[in-house]
């Protein structure tokens, strides 16, 4: 087990540096003019220019710039944005919102996704199963921003639920945004759980469990479920990371003042440093979630653990 974890951690460290390097490169080196990439088209005063060059070490070779940037990121010194505000502060005040939103969405995806998937999987071919299949396909096909925008519109027009989260501190205001954020993951989870349950119901060990005289509820609820959940949990773990990344759309639509909202604002005002910092942070969250999932996978599936 320890060796498995060490191997995965090493792979993640490699992917971490590779990924952040790629993000950084895409931001600065890929566009010809790094200053324009940072501050957009607007005219800059000579002093701002100089400050940007100093802040991002633009007079140094690319890899040195990257090294400085990584150092800042790893020591949580996130620097200042183009209007001189500490990005660290920005992130610190926005983070809790996104975390709450993503966790709420995640709970929803886990509970509803597994429950619906297991029910559909055990009743394959039935009315419930077919309805679930069609509905999930529809949800998968409608881009999240469309679902969100239409819900926000309808909600506001008929005054069904709050569609503007700014200034509303209650968790209740986050429910609809969380449903929207989780909708795609939910549909995918349902389908994955369904397939996994159906496959496992056909497995030989189910026949053994029946031959032991176990009751049906225990065969499905313990033997089949424990096996079926392995791919589902793996998927879900990765999803928690991408839910935070996906929050940009939901937070924009419902005005949730989280990380995604800040990212959206930074894009609109062409604030390069904030964009690249927030994206890097989200990528890190995503990678760490992947690592946790890999370890969890090892715990759940003994065949992996001892390889």
């Amino acid at each position: 087990m320890a060796r498995y974890i060490v191997r995965r951690v090493l792979q993640m460290v490699l992917a971490f540096f590779g990924t952040t390097l790629l993000v950084y490169w895409l931001m600065f080196a890929a566009s010809g003019d790094p200053i324009a990439a940072l501050a957009g088209e607007r005219p800059l005063s000579e002093s701002t220019r100089a400050a940007l060059i100093q802040e991002f070490h633009l007079d140094q070779p690319f890899l040195v710039q990257y090294a400085y940037y990584m150092k800042g990121l790893l020591t949580l010194d996130l620097g200042v944005n183009t209007s001189g505000r500490e990005i660290g502060e920005l992130v610190a005040s926005a983070w809790p919102w996104t975390l709450r939103l993503a966790l709420l969405a995640f709970v929803f995806v886990v509970v509803a996704g597994i429950a619906l998937g297991v029910i559909a999987g055990t009743r394959r071919g039935g009315a419930f199963d077919n309805t679930t299949l069609v509905l999930t396909l529809v949800v998968i096909s409608i881009p999240v921003f469309v679902i969100g925008q239409v819900l926000a519109l309808v909600g506001a027009r008929y005054d069904l639920f709050p569609t503007n989260v700014v200034g509303d501190d209650s968790l209740a205001a986050l429910i609809v945004p969380a449903l929207v954020l989780g909708s795609l993951s939910l549909a995918t989870t349902v389908r994955l759980a369904r397939t996994s349950v159906t496959e496992n119901l056909r497995a030989d060990y189910v026949r053994t469990a029946r031959a032991k005289g176990l009751i049906h509820r225990r065969i499905v609820g313990v033997h089949v479920l424990r096996n079926s959940l392995i791919p589902v949990i793996t998927f879900l773990g990765v999803e928690l990371g991408s839910l935070m990344g996906g929050a940009i759309v939901t937070e924009k639509i419902f005005n949730v003042p989280g990380i995604g909202f800040q990212l959206y604002k930074a894009i609109s005002i062409e604030d390069g440093p904030t964009v690249v910092t927030i994206v890097s942070l989200l990528v890190i969250v995503y990678l760490v979630m992947n690592l946790i999932v890999d370890v969890l996978y090892g715990v759940l599936d003994p065949r992996i653990r001892y390889e």
């Binding site: 931001m27 600065f28 990212l263 390069g272």
Partner: peptide, 12 residues
Amino acid sequence: PLLLGAIVILSS
């Protein structure tokens, strides 16, 4: 993630 990466590329 695809969306985030695309944002980085397109913002420059």
